[in-house]
Amino acid sequence: MPRLDKVAQIPKPDKIFVFKSCVASNKYPGIEACSSDSLRILGIEPVDSDEQTCCGGFVTFANVAAPTASMPAVARNLSLAEEKGLDTCVVCNGCWTFLNEFGHFMNHNAEVKASVNMMLNMMGKEYKGTGSVYHIAEMYYRLKEELAENVKRPLKGIKVATHYGCHYLGGGKYTAIDDAQMPSYLEEIIEILGGEVVPYTANRECCGTGFTQVINGKDLSLEHTKTKLDSVKEADPDILVVQCPYCHSQLDRIQQQFNYRDEGDFQTPILHIAQLVGMGLGLDVAKLGFAAHVSGRARLENVLDRIGR
């Protein structure tokens, strides 16, 4: 069950700084397009900056960057929103947990913060620690009344399964808006959009990227992804909705790899929550960016046929 006290603390600002994700921009542009457009429809003006870089989480937890390198990088990105007096909205679990964890760490370690600011001052920037970081799924849940009012393309009869992703619920066990083991806010959003929720056994299992394992421990990564996909296939949803572009990429692309190598027949379309909301809010089909999806393309077309283009 969502922690309603936490949800109530999320503001409904006029503007929010939208922090872009690498995977969303370069692999699944529909997520980037839908996140800004959906927020605008729900009454929040997205603010962008071309100075924002990748959050740096990947290079950090790939152990290429030590904390001494990643702290200033995090602080730099957060300061871009602070300069504008805004909170940050992210679309990726990785960005969320990384910016949150390291931001929190700096806020509670004055020495680290001071040394980070020494570096930022050289670029004319400063990290104060005044802004908060929210996941776009949290924002949607906070804005559920607005969401309900604006549904233009109800997902009637569409079976949707959820995958929350580890770095939001697991890594944020005290900061996320829902219980780490039995979450339900995505399900609520799906119901608001008119969809039908499908449960499956491996819901809370990792997608299997294993962070860097998909690159240098592929046997481990694929083994795990297969158990996840098998369980999804059993429940047979029309759409599997995720809230992390990295999970999105793994679940979407690995299905195709298994299919090509005769390791199974997986045809489940994976959608980011921003795309699902964009679909429900009636965004133009081109905005949803389905052309970038590799698995379940036929089924996705069928879904669009059923709910209207």
Binding site: C166, H167, G170, G171, C206, G208, F211, N216, L220, H224
Partner: peptide, 13 residues
Amino acid sequence: LWQCFFCSGCYST
């Protein structure tokens, strides 16, 4: 040491 998935499942439970 290099086989961890960084999924934070251990921390969450």
